[in-house]
């Protein structure tokens, strides 16, 4: 018994022999990740409509939305991203996919920024800025077809149009509103 106990520590030899070498020669050998791994995200520029749903859900503000002149800019800063994939979950058009990419180190922060620029639509009534991109409008029309008549108008022109159509119903002539 006591000899057995004494010899116990030597079991390490058999454990070590059986397990062999377990480390891999990364990056020369196989990849270290599983199928479920969440890496950096990729935003499909052909689908994104600049609605900002992902920006609202992103916990560390890696995604930001800014407006400059006639454009809405969606910026993705990988340096802040925690690779949670919440953005992909909430995007209404499925523009975001979570990739397996994780080797993201860079010597320049410029490499860690990706932006997507959307043009802002103009009001078909007065020509002012509408605050929405054309894809956003298409999305609204797709989901509520009745909106097609007024989505291309700014709120002011919309009000005008509503009053106009109400007045027309009540018998006013169009000339009253012109000139």
């Amino acid at each position: 018994m006591s000899l057995k106990k004494l010899l116990k520590p030597f079991k390490l030899i058999s454990i070590a022999r059986r397990s062999g070498v377990v480390t891999v020669l990364y990056p020369y050998q196989k990849s270290l990740i599983t199928t479920e791994f969440r890496g950096k995200i990729s935003i499909d520029a052909t689908k994104c409509m600049g609605c900002g749903a992902c920006v609202n859900a992103c916990p560390p503000n890696a995604l930001t939305l800014s407006r400059r002149d006639d454009t809405i800019i969606l910026n993705y800063f990988i340096g802040r991203c925690i690779f949670c994939g919440r953005c992909a979950e909430v995007c209404p058009v499925g523009a975001i996919t979570v990739t397996h990419e994780f080797e993201l180190a860079s010597t320049s922060t410029r490499d860690l920024n990706e932006s997507l620029v959307h043009r802002i639509e103009r009001c078909s009534g007065c020509g002012g800025g509408l605050g929405a991109t054309s894809r956003m409008l298409q999305y609204v029309i797709l989901h509520s077809p009745a909106s097609e008549n007024y989505v291309h108008l700014c709120p002011d022109c919309r009000k005008k149009k509503l009053i106009q159509s109400l007045a027309m119903k009540m018998g006013a002539r169009t000339e009253d509103y012109e000139g």
Binding site: V22, I82, F83
Partner: peptide, 25 residues
């Protein structure tokens, strides 16, 4: 070494279940 060798399998399992080895999210 051996404790961490065993632990590595748990880490891989965690990634399979959650998408990340740590901070599962």
């Amino acid at each position: 070494m051996h404790s961490w060798r065993i632990r590595e399998k748990v880490m891989v399992l965690a990634e399979l279940l959650t998408g990340s080895r740590k901070t599962y999210g």
